[in-house]
Design a binder for these strands. Sequence first.
DNA 1: CTGCGACTTGTTGCATGGTACAGAAATTAT
DNA 2: ATAATTTCTGTACCATGCAACAAGTCGCAG
Lengths: 236, 236
Amino acid sequence: MQGKREERQSIQAKVADGLRTKITGGELESGASLSEVTLAEEFGVSRTPVREALKQLETEGLVEIRPRVGTFVSAPNRLEINELFEMKEILEGAAARLMAARGEVPELAALRENVAAADAAVLAGDVDGYAELVDEFHRLIIAGSGNQKLAFHYRMLMNQLAFSRFVHTSLSRPGRLGESEAEHHRVADMIAAKDGGTAERVMREHVSSSRQALLDAMIFPGEQPGTTAPQRKREQ
Amino acid sequence: MQGKREERQSIQAKVADGLRTKITGGELESGASLSEVTLAEEFGVSRTPVREALKQLETEGLVEIRPRVGTFVSAPNRLEINELFEMKEILEGAAARLMAARGEVPELAALRENVAAADAAVLAGDVDGYAELVDEFHRLIIAGSGNQKLAFHYRMLMNQLAFSRFVHTSLSRPGRLGESEAEHHRVADMIAAKDGGTAERVMREHVSSSRQALLDAMIFPGEQPGTTAPQRKREQ
DNA sequence: CTGCGACTTGTTGCATGGTACAGAAATTAT
DNA sequence: ATAATTTCTGTACCATGCAACAAGTCGCAG
């Protein structure tokens, strides 16, 4: 199910992968209709593998199948986005703690390189390059936890968030870029110092401020009335 | 996908639910073969909904589909079990922290009742009743976190662990029962006191000692060489 | 007796056709 | 004109058939 090196993958796997990248990459709008027959024609296959791919994406939380009606790209509302970020905070914090406890793992060296490269990117004002490095930073910590189940659930989470779309938005706020990099430094230092408790705390704070920066900068797409109550339920 | 109250559920949902309870309930051995045609005959339906149900269970991590070979009940090895417990610790700890931050929620009252009932069960020596209450204790804290995404991932995790099978084993160790109840008390007190940080720490310690008690008491199934070892190839 | 190759059997993978249902559109009654 | 009803269309749901492949079985040569 995860990244198979083999080219010998089933048709449904190809369809599922193709749709997943299209959804997480933002190529398909939230709420877009995904008809079995249409997709089957697009991919040049029959409806069965398309159907099975959609079923898998539903279990992953990427699409919603309304019986006898149609399949649509899931659109997480504000509440769900907050919950997803809360989970992100939990998992990345825990990953930082676990990584610190493991000592000298390959990911730690890569993390040092990443932070150094990010410093250079900040100095050069290379926002795109920095965004890429931010992505790698978080992935390295998850991988560095050494817990594959954690990595699996984290991937599911990020897919639901379509997070890659948001990174640039999050960094668009003035001053956020250098702030983010400083936080990365603190996290990496605490991990290198094998101080798991502090690493977890700092990582959580980093994710939290990142969420705040994102939500502030974001024009929220789902202001349609009648669905859910977008009023602030609790502002922590 | 979460708990639908509707009786109007599709055939594939019935099959998926039926198989899930059979697997998590221990009715189906790890590594057991699940033939599409056999299951289709058992449930009195065609192969298609069975196939889709199996696909969903694979995404949930409950079964493993080997292409052109067959579908088998997943058998987590020792490493995976440790990883799953680590995740359990992370999520339940975070849930305790979140619940403490929420203040007076309905689940808190239920938690108080649960602990009181558990005290009575311990005094009465009712192990079965206590095991049931332990289950409810953990479910209450997850629900009390107020984060549905967390609850969703937690459910997936517990399904993979087939945890309900283990509870009795875990409590079989002498002295573990009273110990467990004392830990529950501390957790509930910290939540009631709105001390999220301590609640999280104590909850993690509780889960950790619970895991230790279980692993010590467990006869691990995969240790006999030469028996039914279906040579599961480790994926990445 | 041993090793190697063709064959057989069992299994999933994919394609296709019919069915039931939801929702919109058109029609009719009020 | 409006509301209720009927018709219609699009969709997912399920059943079934065929084909491709994996793995074990058997036979045969060495």
